[in-house]
Amino acid sequence: MSCSGNKGAKDTCCETQNQPTGLLDASESRREFLWDAVKNFTFGALTLTVIPMFIEKADAEEVHTGKDGKETKGHTVIFGYLVDTTKCIGCGGCMLACKKENDVPDGQFRTWVERYVYYADGSVRVDANLKGKFAFSELPPINPKEVLKSFFVPKLCNHCTDTPCIQVCPVGASYKTKEGVVLVDYEQCIGCAYCVQACPFGTRFINTKTQTADKCTWCYHRIQHGEKPACVDVCPTGTRTFGDINDPESEISKALAENRIDVLKSYLGTRPKTRYIGLTAEVV
């Protein structure tokens, strides 16, 4: 405060300032300091304790026992999916089953099968079976003598643990269930396609019938009733495995423990729950 500004208050003002420096000021600032400390501590403590309580409560409510009332085995079910690319024969049965089960329009896919063909000169050809049955033999021919190695890689939603797609949804239409399944609320979705852009794996699309975002749900309506996703059910070679990764006795947990497991684009840190066996560096 300036002593020249206010004549009426000049005396006291200047008196204060002319005090031997410190005592009164010091005690005032100490009081303020303590009061601030109390306030900040209380506020901080409330923030750190009360808010997490609400969050935990919300989490706890979400642990369901399965939609048909079946009790889960005393632990939180976290679903996982394993693709063993060494077994896939590219028959496309999964793609057709998925289309039938989930009413996916023609030309769009919730799951599809890619083929990686490595040539002796080091180049790699990637093509995809986008018609279903027999489509690989309809693609431009490959001379088998030039091929070093080749294999199929089935693709589907990775059901990431840290999801880029849910983060960008402006209306809360994309969400993750407690079991880790990433779903779309088709009634809430406005079809803005931000999530389609955000997905680093290209697994989301705007459904041409419903004009909403659409994606693999791991057949949520089947797994909630104890069945396997359609693609897993029809796979004739056991390429696709699905189950509870929190249950050490499940088929998938054993397979995950016994094999060398990889995920797609691990450098993005999305922590996918769709895992792979037999990937190469070229598979993205």
Partner: peptide, 10 residues
């Protein structure tokens, strides 16, 4: 989502 109709024969 959970109660959607199941179409494919299991």
């Amino acid at each position: 989502a959970a109660n959607k109709e199941r179409k494919l024969t299991t």
